[in-house]
Design a protein around this nucleic acid. Structure first.
Length: 887
RNA sequence: AUUUCUGUAGCUCAGUAGGUUAGAGCGUUGCCUUGACAUGGCAAAGGUCAUCAGUUCGAUUCUGAUCAGAAAUACCA
């Protein structure tokens, strides 16, 4: 480091990565992340929505962590026992795919390994890499209680899963049934509705002729999936449809097969679509399945678990549906059974994991009956027991919850919580219990086999707020920390997580899992496009941490945003945050240079020394900031809270206060220190590293005591002290600032350098005494060398070397050494008149309006009158000046 | 198709009890290396708050319609 670059050996640019790791370890090893046992205040708990154990940190994690950690740190500093409980999710499909891919490089498939060995392989992987995401969260400053970290497959959460399954089954809320589910051939498992994305695709609508069995007539049916003809078990028409009345009850031959099927009437059939005749394929379409149920139609399944045609598809067996489609179309064309083919755009379901086209397929799966569970969960939000922020997501929640469908929870995977159901091969009865049974409950036989399937990963996530705290056991943690406080996550995950957590929380514990849901928006790239690996537009948060520092990243993510809204992250935003951090750093350098090795402890009473106006002013402004910040954080207006802190710090403390006190020797130091420290505390939840770093250096400059011996992370968050509120000081300083501002403006307009001195006559009526007292400050910050205070009317002649400017409450006349061209200044006066007039008119109109006087609140009327008076006075002063000008 | 959200300065966005001469950051223009900081300072330009109605003494803010953009959910075979 260059010696000239430093005051007291502190580098003039803040370098984050030199300190962040040390600070984090200091907090972690000091046990500051653990819930305090001393406080009797209401605990504040955030259970981290568990990231995927195979996952790597992305911007979404960074945002969610910044917000969660901010909430946690704020409450911790407010003296609440806080628990931020981290965890990871086993992520069934995703993890299995990762490990399968790894094994395939060694030419091993999971089938050759077998289930047990394969699951062992995954565990090996998890043990090796599962902590990676945790380390990444640490670099963001997450103040989690790592000793309570939890993994969805740990024994306790697993027990919670089994207990829940058994309870729900016993209550009749879990059932096994043959349903149409959506099947992903690539992942070879059933999926829930939420795991499917619909995309519009260009395809064809095939008009196919079916021959009636008894006559030589044909009927024509429109379909997008001709390959499902092989699974047709009925034909349906609308009973109201006069065109097709005569067909009802007749039989047709299924093309390419020897089967004959009946024509039935069902009012679900749309008369406008196609020919108004629907082929019914109960095995491969949800609507057809319902029709099949109503009319007792047979169900034929033509697909196997890997999505290929099975033996029901006759000669097409073993081929994939797409191939079969074109073959069938060709075969039908050869038989002249294709009437026409028209291009058709329709939406097709895709697997949200692998993006393959999913197939509706009949299959036996486990379901949760949702309606009874959803009811109390809807009620909890309706009666405001749970508050969703921003509120408009409540509507989306209600909408989904009141149309909820049963949840398919079985997955044909090997990695996850295996379904706790055992089938008896002797009596066919099920044994369903929490611990592994050895015998059939019914016949006591030992030949029982566990269901091979595992549960949907979200099933365990749904239990997360209580399972991580020890449920179903009555643990101390559950007692102390449940229900939790806030669930913070992305709005895209409202249904996956939030809704299911609310339902299962109430179902299992009888209590809501959290009282507040805070939903954030998505982080988008510079162009506003959603970040995704496939698009290659992702920014790695760890790269940003390296370049700009963790605080800068956090500040960027939390600034200028409001809940629920998406945000764009770009370089200039990050730079601005880094610059802010650097500004803080340099203010600290300034203050530090004043207090180095001080023998007085400034953290004690500072009220004694408030003889200076600017001290009273900045402390008063600080109270205002503190009050606003607390209110804003209380109502989760996080971006606005941050803005208030940054504005106060930069625009008031740095731009004005620091400049004011440069004239003084040491009398300002206590206030200088006090306000800086208050800023550090206010900012700590937003930018934990730099604030703690500065505090550690600063607080050691003074004799130690109980207030400065403790780390910033657990110091008390500032609260408003009304004793420091001083509106008179605020008014006075605003007059001083206006004078300085006016003179600087003039200098800039006339290109008069700051160095060249000016003389001023100020007449500001009742405040002339103030000007007298503060003239040194005014001189220094505006470059005046002489101030005369005149009670007389300002000279309104127009000597060529002086000009009079208008202030809110008076005038200021500036004298130049030489003649200056003032044309521009006089024009400015005219411009202001033009601007001011409409305002005056507006205000006059309001005052004259009787209904305004009668109906508007009194303070608004008073304020309006004041405003008018001020503007009119100003207008008079401007007019006086203009009258005496001859250009 | 339904629902929801968004439309404020050149760009990105704040603006939660309806009363402000409508704000910030970035960018732009001019000036400045002054002992905290050029990742800085000083000064300035820039907006009919999408459009149109309504409610109100008063609307960027509330209501409705329209236009434009985004998202979610559902889906017709």
């Amino acid at each position: 480091m260059n010696q000239s670059d430093s005051i007291n050996n502190i580098p003039k640019v803040y370098v984050p990565d030199q300190t962040e790791k040390n600070i984090y370890d200091f907090w972690k090893n000091g046990g500051y992340f653990k819930p305090s046992v001393k406080s009797t205040k209401k605990p504040f708990i955030i259970i981290m929505p568990p990231p995927n154990v195979t996952g790597e940190l992305h911007m979404g994690h960074a945002l969610t962590t910044a917000l969660q950690d901010l909430m946690v740190r704020w409450r911790r500093m407010k003296g609440h026992p806080t628990l931020y409980l981290p965890g990871t999710d086993h992520a069934g499909i995703a993890t299995q795919v990762v490990v399968e891919r790894m094994l395939s490089k060694k030419n091993i498939s999971r089938h050759t390994l077998g289930r047990e060995a394969f699951v062992d392989e995954i565990w090996k992987w998890v043990r090796q890499y599962g902590d990676r995401i945790y380390n990444q969260l640490e670099s963001l400053g997450a103040s989690c209680d790592w000793e309570r970290k939890s993994f969805t497959l740990d024994p306790d959460p697993s027990k919670a899963v089994r207990t829940t399954f058994v309870n729900l089954y016993n209550k009749g809320l879990i059932y096994r049934g043959e349903r149409i589910v959506t099947w992903c051939p690539r992942c070879s498992t059933a999926l829930s509705d939420l795991e499917i994305n619909h995309k519009n695709k260009d395809s064809n609508l095939y008009f196919i002729k079916y021959k009636l069995s008894t006559t030589d007539d044909f009927i024509t049916i429109a379909t997008t999936r001709p390959e499902t003809i092989l699974a047709d078990t009925g034909i349906a028409v609308n009973p109201e449809d006069e065109r097709h009345q005569h067909l009802i009850g007749k039989q047709v031959n299924v093309p390419l097969t020897k089967r004959k099927i009946s024509i039935i009437a069902d009012d679900i059939v749309g008369m406008e679509f196609g020919t108004g005749i629907l082929k019914v394929t109960p095995g491969h379409d949800p609507i057809d399945f319902e029709i099949g149920q109503r009319h007792n139609l047979k169900t034929i399944n033509i697909l196997d678990t890997s999505g290929l045609m099975n033996s029901n598809a006759q000669e097409y067996k073993g081929k994939d549906p797409q191939t079969v489609r074109s073959e069938i179309v060709q075969n039908l064309a050869d038989l002249e059974q294709i009437e026409k083919i028209i291009p058709y755009n329709h939406s097709v379901g895709h697997c949200s994991r692998c993006d393959d086209v999913v197939e509706p397929i009949i299959s036996k799966q486990w379901f949760v009956k949702m309606e009874p569970i959803a009811k109390p969960a809807i009620e909890a939000v309706k009666n405001k027991e749970i508050r969703i922020i921003p509120n408009h997501f409540s509507k989306i929640y209600f909408n989904w919850m009141s149309n909820i469908k049963d949840w398919c929870i079985s997955r044909q995977l090997w990695w996850g919580h295996r379904i706790p159901v055992w089938y008896c091969s002797e009596c066919d009865q099920l044994t369903i219990q929490i611990t592994d049974p050895t015998n059939c409950h019914n016949c006591n036989s030992t030949s029982i086999n566990q269901d091979p399937d595992v549960l949907d990963t979200w099933f365990s996530s749904a239990l997360w707020p209580h399972s991580t705290l020890g449920w179903p056991e009555h643990t101390e943690d559950l007692d102390k920390f449940y229900p939790t406080s806030v669930l913070e996550t992305g709005h895209d995950i409202l249904f996956f997580w939030v809704a299911r957590m609310i339902m299962m929380g109430i179902e299992n514990t009888g209590t809501i899992p959290f009282d507040t849901v805070y939903l954030h928006g998505l982080v988008r790239d510079t162009k506003g496009i959603k970040m995704s690996k496939t698009k290659g537009n992702v920014t790695d948060p760890l790269d940003i941490v390296k370049t700009y520092g963790s605080d800068a990243l956090r500040l960027s993510l939390t600034s200028g945003t409001s809940a629920g809204n998406d945000m764009r992250l770009n370089e200039s935003r990050l730079q601005a945050s880094r610059n802010f951090a650097n500004k803080l750093w340099n203010a600290f350098r300034f203050v530090n240079s004043k207090i180095e090795n001080n023998s007085v402890n400034y953290s004690n009473d500072i009220a004694k020394n408030l003889t200076h106006l600017e001290d009273r002013w900045i402390l008063s402004r600080l109270q205002n900031t503190i009050e606003n910040v607390n209110n804003l954080l209380e109502t989760y207006q996080i971006g606005e809270a941050q803005k208030q802190i940054q504005d106060f710090f930069w625009s008031e403390y740095c731009d004005w206060y620091l400049e004011f006190v440069k004239l003084r020797k040491s009398s300002a130091t206590p206030t200088l220190y006090h306000v800086l420290v208050a800023n550090l505390k206010l900012l700590h939840p937003f930018a934990p590293f730099i604030t703690e770093t500065i505090w550690q250096i600063l607080s050691k400059q003074m004799p130690s005591d109980e207030t400065n011996d403790i780390p910033l992370i657990i110091t008390e968050f500032p609260t408003k002290n009304s004793a420091f509120v001083d509106t008179k000081a605020e008014n006075d300083i605003s007059i001083i600032i206006e004078i300085i501002h006016t003179i600087r403006n003039l200098r800039s307009d006339l290109q008069i350098p700051h160095k060249s001195s000016l003389k001023a006559n100020i007449n500001i009526g009742t405040k002339n005494k103030l000007i007298d007292q503060e003239q040194n400050v005014i001189k220094s910050l505006s470059g005046l060398n002489e101030i005369n205070i005149s009670v007389e009317k300002t000279n309104i002649e127009k000597p060529p070397n002086q000009i009079t400017l208008v202030l809110s409450n008076g005038t200021i006349t500036i004298q130049f050494e030489q003649t200056v061209n003032l044309e521009k200044q006089y024009k400015k006066l005219g411009d202001e008149l033009i601007k001011i007039d409409p305002h005056i008119h507006r205000l006059v109109r309001m005052i004259k309006d009787k209904s305004f006087i009668n109906k508007a609140p009194e303070e608004v009327v008073i304020k309006t009158k004041d405003q008018l008076k001020n503007l009119e006075n100003r207008k008079i002063r401007i007019n006086n000046l203009i009258k005496n000008i001859t250009i």
